[in-house]
Nucleic acid binder design. Structure first.
Length: 433
RNA sequence: UCCCCGGUAGCUCAAUUGGCAGAGCAGCCGGCUGUUAACCGGCGGGUUGGAGGUUCGAGUCCUCCCCGGGGAGCCA
């Protein structure tokens, strides 16, 4: 019995006889020599079958097996420049696990988006999706490692909530034993409470927004990495965010180079974008930059997609936009003491038109200010009582932010639409598969 | 919710002014000892999204509906 290994481990087994357990991805034949491309989740491997080296029954099977047959291949690993990836398996024996009776829907040809989305459960087996999802994995690990190194405590937030964070139009309502409840749009309010217990906290969790938006940057269910830090002011907050984003990008480049190559991502461009300090402008300056790029907008408007694109084009690296007019930002953001019309907040706009990847702010820390702002936003006091309560018992300056995982993955991988950056995207009009 | 584009073979698309519904790929059969989405020869494959209308004649024009894609607003 040959040793079972994974494709990504093959460089360590050159010359040995090994077994790979996987699926038939593609095949080519030239009469007496046959090539199988086998995938196993860690990579893709070319297997070479010849009359001389391969057992007759196995050689025969090579010609007949359909795409996505699950199989176990045994043979000798060798280095060969003609093989995609540089290594191949000289096939000795092939045994099938299950042979599909019908044709696999996704051919190795072009397909329309609607067709691919209907077959998302199978589409994720293809090479590009494999690469994207492995980059996503690296992004998740980078976030966890970064926060651990920085001394953060990993925590969790409730997903079923009774209070709202963002606007009322974007909630998914549900019936909680007869009481109205919602799917969480953000864990922020809970993280504010938790950071008063644990100092620096983060979590990576899902967020739900029932917005009827159909764009390449929106999902109704997406993942956020949220952090909240006691005793951090606005400046500390931005410095931390910049370290995080740079860490993620460098981590992915180091760990997932092969995947970025499959995706034909310009790795040098990505490196350059995070090399130096990120750009920082105030909202007021940003409006001028946007206007100078030929996109009309006025002071007081929120940024639309064209405005964000103009900014990212102008700077060519991530850019923080600070101090938005308070009235276009949520109630919990602390006002700038020097100019109470603006909030101590910042959005981080990714390069290359991927839009806002982080939104964050220093939070209101006094009870009076919080009560005043709840009133300004016409929000009821009752459901926020516990949140108000936090300001009564040793309240301190604190700040936090949320990073959108899918938009970050989209930027790093260079994929245009974020629906490809999560295994099963939830979008307007798309609940299956 | 609004604006734009589209729906023809399993998939991706073509079909001139309204005039015989076609090609590539996939599938099946055959060939090829280094292929890289392999290639070469042959074969089968259609309720043109649905309903109604105009017309001698509709894939093509009109009305309504369904579905998909792109974008806007809003946001991460």
């Amino acid at each position: 019995m040959s040793r079972v290994v994974y494709i990504e481990e093959l460089p360590r087994h050159v010359g040995e006889e090994v077994a790979i357990r996987g699926w038939l991805f593609n095949k080519r034949s030239s009469g007496k020599i046959r090539f199988l491309i086998v995938r196993d989740g860690t990579g893709f491997l070319q297997c070479v079958a010849t009359v001389k080296d391969t057992e007759p029954e196995s050689f025969e099977l090579c010609e007949r097996l359909p795409q996505e047959t699950s199989l176990i291949v045994t043979g000798t690993v060798r280095e060969d420049p003609r093989a995609p990836g540089g290594y191949e398996l000289l096939l000795k024996r092939l045994t099938t696990v299950q042979v599909p009776k019908e044709q696999f829907p996704i051919a190795l040809k072009e397909h329309g988006v609607g067709f691919l989305m209907d077959h998302r459960h199978l589409w994720i087996r293809m090479r590009r999706q494999f690469a994207i999802l492995r980059v996503r994995d690296a992004v998740m690990w980078a976030i966890r490692e970064f926060f651990k190194r920085e001394g953060f405590v990993a925590t969790e937030c409730p997903i079923i909530v009774g209070t709202q964070v963002e606007g009322t139009t974007t909630l998914f309502p549900l019936d909680y034993f007869g009481e109205p409840a919602y799917l969480s749009q953000s864990g922020q309010l809970y993280l504010e409470a938790t950071c008063m217990a644990l100092g620096k906290v983060y979590w990576i969790g899902p967020a739900f927004r029932a917005e009827k938006s159909k764009t390449r940057r929106h999902l109704t269910e997406f993942w956020m990495a949220e952090a909240e830090m006691a005793y951090f002011d606005h400046g500390d907050n931005l410095a931390l965010q910049e370290r995080l984003v740079r860490y993620i990008v460098e981590y992915v480049i180091a760990e997932r180079k092969r995947e970025l190559e499959i995706l034909e991502r310009d790795i040098e461009a990505l490196k350059r974008e995070v090399e130096g300090p990120f750009a920082r402008v105030t909202y007021r300056e940003a409006v001028e930059v946007i206007n100078s790029e030929g996109v009309p907008m006025e002071y007081g408007d929120d940024f639309g997609a064209p405005a964000e694109d103009a900014l990212s084009k102008h700077f060519g690296r991530p850019v923080f936009v600070e101090r938005f007019p308070a009235r276009i930002k949520p109630f919990y953001m602390k006002r700038d003491p020097n100019d109470p019309s603006v909030a101590l907040c910042a959005d981080l706009i990714a390069p290359e038109g991927y839009g806002e990847i982080i939104g964050g702010s220093q939070r209101v820390d006094s009870e009076e200010e919080l009560l005043r702002q709840l009133e300004e936003y016409n929000l009821p006091r009752e459901p926020y009582q516990w949140y108000i309560d936090l300001r009564k018992w040793g309240s301190v300056p604190h700040s936090g932010f949320g990073l959108g995982v899918e938009r970050t993955v989209a930027w790093i991988t260079g994929v245009r639409h974020i629906r490809e950056t999560i295994p099963f995207p939830r979008m307007l009009d798309r609940l299956y598969p």
